[in-house]
């Protein structure tokens, strides 16, 4: 499919779903239950025109990066430990498998008992990121070419050289895929934690307020903003990766 055909297909798809939405709005015909696309668009424009919106998006993004950074760092440490030591694997693997299976809401509600509402989103979102990074990195490390590791040992690379030149290049693809998947998941978990914890300045808090005050158009608008920010983060990440990988032939 050419670039132009793909763009046309995307636009047609968006128009189709907007039409479905508009029809649903007419069918329901109660603004309190369902905002129309036009109402939502107007609310988005209005919200984005307020300076505090950008401050809130900024605060939420800072939390997102803190959560993502913490989750990634802990994921790397856990993957290193479980790859190097069978004892560490026996201890850490079941815990992280359990974390992966636990609903994010459980962590958020528990964390709200222990910590401030501003810290809960970082805690909950990093917990969602950690097992993804750990699982993918561990899988990547297990898949490192044994022949290359043996070559590195024969030529006395030492730990640092082996890590930098054999292991890291081999697991880079798996790691970036995990990171890419984590960005959206981390953002969603963080917004959920903000909705439940309602910290002072947060996108999730605004979503919660819109619901409480029955501002359905704002509820839809904030949801749209959350989706747009998430998509923009994914696009930026993809661009950074593409720029970083330019010139390298695999």
């Amino acid at each position: 499919m050419s670039g132009r055909t793909r763009a046309a297909a995307t636009i047609l798809s968006i128009l189709f779903w907007l039409a479905v939405w508009q029809l649903a709005y007419h069918a329901v015909s109660r603004d309190l239950l369902l905002a129309s696309p036009t109402q939502t668009f107007n609310a988005v424009v209005r919200i984005l025109g307020e300076p505090r919106t950008w401050r809130m998006i900024g605060r939420s993004l800072i939390r997102q990066f803190a959560a993502l950074g913490t989750g990634v760092l802990l994921g790397i440490v856990c993957a290193a430990l479980t790859s190097l030591s069978k004892i560490a694997r026996a201890i850490i693997s079941p815990a992280l498998t359990a974390v992966r299976a636990t609903p994010v809401a459980s962590f958020i509600i528990l964390a709200l008992v222990w910590m401030s509402s501003a810290s809960v989103p970082i805690f909950a979102a990093s917990l969602m990121t950690l097992p993804i990074i750990w699982a993918n990195l561990s899988q990547g490390v297990a898949g490192v070419d044994r022949n290359l590791l043996e070559m590195a040992a024969a030529y006395r690379f030492g730990r640092t050289k082996t890590l930098l030149h054999v292991i890291v290049p081999s697991i880079k693809g798996t790691f970036l895929a995990a990171l890419s998947a984590s960005i959206g998941l981390c953002w969603k978990a963080m917004i959920a934690a903000e909705v439940l914890g309602t910290p002072k300045e947060a996108v999730g808090t605004m979503l919660y307020n819109a619901k409480i005050y029955l501002n359905t158009d704002e509820l839809f608008a904030w949801t749209a903003i959350i989706i747009i920010v998430s998509r923009l983060m994914e696009i930026c990440f993809a661009k950074v990766i593409k720029a970083g990988g330019r010139g390298i032939t695999y």
Partner: peptide, 25 residues
């Protein structure tokens, strides 16, 4: 104790250039 070994397969690091592969040793 210290050996240099030519393996039957080339075992060059795929994500490094030929020069980089040799620079490592």
């Amino acid at each position: 104790h210290r050996v240099s070994y030519l393996f039957q397969e080339h075992r060059l690091i795929p994500r490094r250039t030929v020069l980089e592969n040799l620079r490592l040793v």
